[in-house]
Structures are given as C-alpha cells and as structure tokens.
Simulated assay, not measured.
Amino acid sequence: MSLARRHRDRVLAAKTVASAPDGGAAVVPAAAPSSAAGAANASPENRAAAQIALRLTHDLRRLKEIKSIDLKIAAKREMLPHYRDWLVGLHKADAGVGSGIAAEVLPTCMVWMIDVGEYSDAIDLAEFMMRHRVEMPARYQRDTATVILEEIAEAALKAQAAGEEFPLCILDGVDHLTYGEDMHDQARAKLLKAIGVEQLRRAEESEAETSAPRLNAALDALREAQRLHDRIGVRDRIRRAEKLLKAVTPEPEETNEQGGNTSA
C-alpha cells in the first residue's frame, strides 16, 4: 500500500469519527443494495467506512470457512495490515465511536492482534476502547477488560506450558490496564498465575543474590491467584518458590544480651 493511500485511510478514519457520533453507523451496510447516485454522493469518509465494512464482512466470512486454528491465525496475520491505517486514524481522533463500523473493527482487530502475537498493539487498542467505552460485539460474550486479560493470560500460560518465556512487560501492562475492573475471579487468577510463573522462571535463571525480589514477586502473584481460585494449579509452584527463597535468604545473625554479635 502506498504512503499516500495509508495517509488517506488515516485521515478518513479520523474524519468518520469526527463527523459521525455513531462512528459511521449511518453508512449503508455493505450487504445492503444502494443506488449508484447514492454512492456517488457519499462523502469520502463514508465511502471509506463502507469499504472497511465490506472488507470486515468478507474477512469474517472467510475465517468462518477455515477449520484449522493455525490457518486461521495465518489468515488474520494477512488481514490485519488492511485495517492498520484505519485504526491509526481512529486512535488519533481520540473520540468515541458509538455503534458504527468502527465499533466492530476495533474489538475484532484487537482480538486478532492477540491471536497473532501482536500483544502491545492489542493493549493499545484495549486502552482506547476502555477509555471510550467501546463495547465488545455480542459474539465475544465478555467485556473489553475481561477479553484482553483472559486472552493474553491464556496465551502466556500456553507458551509457559511449552517451556517458552512470555514478555513480563505485557503481563504487567494488562494487569495495570485492568486493575480495579470488575470481572470473574477465575479470569483474574489466570493472569496472576501467568505473572507468577514468569517471575519464578526468571528467578530460577538469576544469580542467587539477585533472585529474592523476583521470588517475592512470584509468591505474591501465585498466592493471590490461589486465593482467587483454589483450583488454578499453583500449589507446587508456591512451594518451590518458598523453598528457593529460603535458600537465598541469609539467616539473621544471633546477638548477645548487650546487642553485640555472638561471634565477637
């Protein structure tokens, strides 16, 4: 895509939000017939919104026809660049998007970004959505905070189960973004487990004298996960973290009655 086309998409997306409080809901749906005269008289931003609506309809239909999870992820990775400049324009407009096409594009692309591993971009979209109260489409059956937390937590736990590391900054970012949001305890426990497992793994790879802070952080997260959901499966890791912390924590020196060191 040319630089001029990318710039145009960003500008039109921003104008769509600025000119329509509903984020483009007034645009005729892609599947509905429209007259040539109506299409010719439509504003550039409304025509751009209609094109995005048509693309999203086509892409969702295509994904529904794909059975393999790996192939679905590959398809989403191929699809996302076509929405990226539109999303940049909406983000720069920094306004509510109501219930129009933008309210479909934003959450859908956020989930796709998680699926393909673009976690930082997904968190940016989630922050925008939460700030402007953009709701998830009904098909996701959860609110924005729960989706971003649970989907990234599950991605982290899957990677960790395979022996792979997961970016701790991403987990901490999700924890910060969703702090104080009302959601089921089981969902929050997943994120805390992922944080605790990652902190424990990093502590085990650290030098003994520098591992204590990570072990304490791991224990805080794992114990809170256990408190929120007693079947989250962290008991063994808590015991391991406690054992490692005891091994690297120096014993306090004994003192005599005058407060002096007994070895003096």
Rank of each mutant, 00 (worst) to 15 (best):
D22R: 07
M129H: 03
A31D: 14
A74G: 15
M113P: 06
V28R: 13
S34T: 14
L87S: 04
A26I: 12
V28G: 09
K72Y: 02
V27Q: 06
L60W: 07
F128R: 03
E118F: 07
G89I: 06
M79E: 02
A32F: 02
A25V: 08
A102R: 00
Y119R: 06
P29V: 08
L71V: 14
R47W: 12
E45D: 10
L125W: 01
K76Q: 06
A36W: 12
A93G: 00
W86Q: 05
A39Y: 15
A126T: 00
R6K: 14
A95I: 00
L54I: 12
V11D: 10
S120K: 15
K15R: 14
I69F: 11
L125R: 01
L106P: 06
C109M: 06
T108M: 03
R133L: 11
K15A: 14
G117P: 02
R62F: 06
T57F: 13
M130V: 04
A50Q: 03
E127G: 08
L90S: 00
A18S: 13
L12V: 10
S120P: 05
L63F: 10
A75L: 02
R6Y: 14
G117Q: 07
E104Y: 05
Y119K: 05
A37Y: 01
L125Q: 05
D121T: 04
R61V: 10
A13T: 07
A75W: 01
G38D: 15
P29K: 03
G117S: 14
P81F: 05
M129P: 04
V134S: 02
G23C: 01
A42W: 12
L54H: 15
G24Q: 01
R47S: 04
K67E: 12
I69Y: 11
A74L: 13
G96A: 11
E65A: 13
R5T: 11
V17N: 09
R84W: 04
M129F: 03
S34N: 15
